[in-house]
């Protein structure tokens, strides 16, 4: 049977491919028993999800943010403050963190979305840094000492697992899939079209009736919400947070890079990029990082430069262009 619309066909294929990928990845722990390797898997899935979230605002809507550590940190802190001070289960904490982050994103976006290009990028960096500084000085939240997550037992209800990394692995997989699915659903929705129009030419989009400002706000809120879920997850996963470990600029960069490598504004870019980049950085760090000699930074920096200069459209972007050319 032939579908009339090739576009619908491609969409259905994407969904099938994603489901197959998730099923295959879910079987990985049967093969991968090493705890370190499982750790890398969890991080890879988490960064795939985070980068997918970043991609919504920066890739699809074209508003390049280098301050997503703010939302990541908001998710981590809200989750752990509610957990340690009020005994609220991290599930609700993560949701609350997402809402707080989305609110912050809207509050930040309100003045900043009038800024264009580099002005906007700088604003995101400065605001994230201001948030970092405030957390460093907020005594109730542990200030620079951070929060040590107390052990309350091994359970899904508390989202805390001491003996095995597998539950975290499955959560990270689900999280990555949900982030992908959200992007998949949005791609062909009205918001998806609006965001791409805003990215390509905001003035022209406005003149055609696209509500540019609302588009940016919606993208920012959704992107921040998902990022904060990742922050809450990470806090439970490492069970200790401080401003340095969840809000430093490093995270903003790490969320952006997989999408940059894989292809900005593409459905598969962040996942492909994370699958390559995160194991690679973990490996260089474990081989060279312990020496403290800066080899890991040099390799990492060269990688970032190489990606940006060598593959500006990203791996997925380059592949799909080649496929279109051979199809034509």
């Amino acid at each position: 049977m032939q579908d009339a619309d090739p576009r619908l066909n491609a969409r259905r294929n994407n969904l099938v491919i994603a489901c197959v990928c998730v099923a295959l990845i879910a079987c990985l722990p049967l093969v991968v028993k090493d705890v370190y390797a499982q750790n890398v898997l969890v991080l890879t899935l988490m960064y795939a999800a985070l980068s997918q979230s970043w991609n919504i605002l920066s890739g699809y809507c074209g508003q390049i943010s280098l301050g997503h550590a703010l939302y990541f940190g908001a998710g981590a802190y809200v989750t752990e403050l509610l957990f340690t001070k009020f005994g609220v289960a991290p599930w609700f904490g993560m949701a609350a963190g997402g809402l707080v982050a989305a609110t912050i994103a809207a509050a930040v976006g309100y003045p900043c979305f009038r800024l264009k290009g580099h002005y906007f990028v700088i604003a995101t960096i400065v605001i994230a840094e201001a948030g970092y500084l405030l957390m460093l000085n907020w005594d109730y939240a542990g200030a620079a000492m951070g929060i040590d997550v107390p052990v309350r037992g091994d359970s899904w209800a508390k989202f805390q697992f001491l003996r095995s990394k597998l539950p975290y692995f499955y959560f990270a997989l689900a999280f990555a899939f949900v982030a992908w699915l959200v992007t998949w659903m949005i791609e062909e929705s009205r918001w998806g079209y609006w965001w791409r129009a805003v990215k390509d030419n905001a003035e022209a989009a406005e003149s055609l009736g696209v509500e540019v400002f609302r588009s940016k706000m919606a993208a920012a809120a959704l992107s921040a919400f998902l990022t904060a879920i990742g922050g809450g997850f990470y806090a439970q996963f490492v069970s200790y947070i401080d401003p340095e470990s969840v809000m430093s600029f490093q995270f903003s960069l790490l969320m952006a890079l997989p999408a940059v490598l894989g292809g900005i504004g593409t459905l598969w870019g962040p996942a492909v990029g994370a699958a390559i980049l995160i194991p690679l950085t973990e490996l260089t760090r474990s081989f060279a990082g312990g020496s403290g000699k800066g080899f890991d930074l040099i390799i990492y920096g060269l990688l970032v430069m190489g990606i940006a200069l060598g593959r500006p459209e990203g791996i997925v972007g380059a592949l799909s262009r080649r496929m279109r050319r051979s199809a034509a």
Binding site: F295, I299, Y300, L302, L303, M305, I307
Partner: peptide
């Protein structure tokens, strides 16, 4: 990336 390399 250049900045990171320089720091390294």
């Amino acid at each position: 990336g250049l900045g990171i390399v320089m720091r390294g």
